[in-house]
Amino acid sequence: MLLREVEYAKPGSVAEALELLAANDGARALAGGQTLINVMKARAASPDMLVDLNGLDDLTGIELAGDGTLTIGAMTTYTELMGSAEAKARPILGEVCATIADVQVRNRGTIGGNVCSNDPTNHLPPLMVSVGARMTIAGADGEREVSAEEFFLGVYLTAVGPGELLTRISIPAGKKDGFAAVTLGADGTCIANAAATVNGSVRVALGCVDAVPVIVTAESADGVADAVRAANLEPPSDVHASSEYRTHLAEVLATRAAQEASAR
């Protein structure tokens, strides 16, 4: 509780938001706030200014193109995505969002906020990598697009640079996806997770084992366990799981996610 002093700005457009972010070194974008506000309560982060992205229509909305490509505004909440008819084109998205935290957090927390915070225990970074998402980043010089693989750079670090914003995420058509996780209890903190997509071969993105999602590929679900072993993971140890246990879970969960994906 009890944040440090902070300035608050509520821009009326994406352009204005970008200007505010560019003009203030210590400014940070405030999306759903379900991570950032908590970090600020602990005073582990203390931005000088919060640039509130809520209410910017250009950052919301879910569109389904004729080729099946989904475009999701960065400020789309988990709840909005779960209820979106368009998003059902890629069912795994809504399914995974439904397992994130709780109703209140899903009502405020956003897809963009989840990927931009890139907490290694988040569900969406590995999922975005496995489904082959592409992120659109806006800045003073206009927009650029990066793949999910290029997007995640390190713990709490992404390709969104100073003065930039993630505006939308596009996800190609597909259905053969799977996801598996071990959490504390039914819905607590994530210990390990894996997202898998079958597109000819199987591609699995592993979460919680490194600073960024780790990708392994195999011909089929049967080969996934070997592929994970070959990746020589060295996940961190913490109070919830030793490195050894996480390594083991990665193998099990990768296989389960791949099996689920293959079975669809």
């Binding site: 608050y8 706030g33 908590n38 309560k41 509130d52 809520n54 209140q104 405020r108």
Partner: peptide
Amino acid sequence: GVLVKSCMLLAVQ
């Protein structure tokens, strides 16, 4: 109309 946790929202918001 939306259920939220009021500890993760600023009053100004």
